[in-house]
């Protein structure tokens, strides 16, 4: 059946003429859904947290399950910047430039206490909180946050994008970021070494 026949059927019988399943949704929900489901992070590893970020992407925790395994080297192809580690005074302008190069809409997760507040390095060299440089949507605590906490932060971000809450929070905040703080939930898995046959 050609397209013109289908159109003719539609004119004649209305929606009954459609032979496939279909769904309707608000355009906004569809957009949010697609944004939440393909959130590509930029590679922006700085320090210790970067190792945990890579561990989250690796086999054991497998970020690929959530459509996020492609860490993009080019900020133009990334939606999410995970600031993983301490930001030095020398790095701050670079960070801002990379953030500016990312396409809208873009999200920022501040991973670890150093990125969030300077952490234990309260001195001349470290920017005391990356929210002075870029707007932060989700703060993940920990030094470093384990993969579980990072994934918790990512899920929170996904959820807030999906519900549209994130943009509402952004509009309400002064800094321009949603500023959600999640809990540290490391150590959820058993600490015993995996016995052979499991791994």
């Amino acid at each position: 059946m050609g397209v013109s026949d289908q159109v003719a059927d539609l004119r004649e019988h209305g929606l009954k003429a459609i032979q496939h399943n279909f769904m309707t949704a608000k355009l906004e929900s569809l957009v949010n859904w697609s944004r939440a489901r393909s959130c590509w992070p930029a590679t922006f590893g700085l320090a210790c947290c970067a190792i945990e970020m890579m561990a989250t992407g690796a086999a054991h925790y497998d970020l690929a399950r959530y459509g996020m395994e492609v860490f993009r080297a080019s900020p133009r192809q990334a939606d999410l910047m995970i600031v993983a580690g301490r930001v030095s005074q020398k790095m701050a302008p670079v960070l801002r430039q990379i953030y500016d190069q990312m396409m809208e809409p873009k999200w920022v997760i501040s991973m670890g206490v150093c990125a969030s507040s300077g952490g234990m390095f309260n001195n001349y060299a470290i920017v005391q909180g990356v929210d002075q440089v870029v707007p932060v949507d989700v703060y993940a605590p920990g030094c470093p946050p384990g993969p579980e906490t990072l994934m918790h932060a990512i899920f929170t971000l996904h959820q807030e994008i999906l519900s549209g809450e994130l943009l509402a929070r952004r509009a309400a905040s002064e800094s321009g970021g949603a500023g959600i703080a999640v809990q540290q939930i490391d150590g959820q898995t058993a600490t015993a070494t995996i016995r052979r046959g499991h791994g």
Partner: peptide, 11 residues
């Protein structure tokens, strides 16, 4: 280098 200078010796 220096993009991750943390001032650890000062701290």
């Amino acid at each position: 280098i220096g993009y991750l200078h943390t001032g650890m010796e000062k701290t």
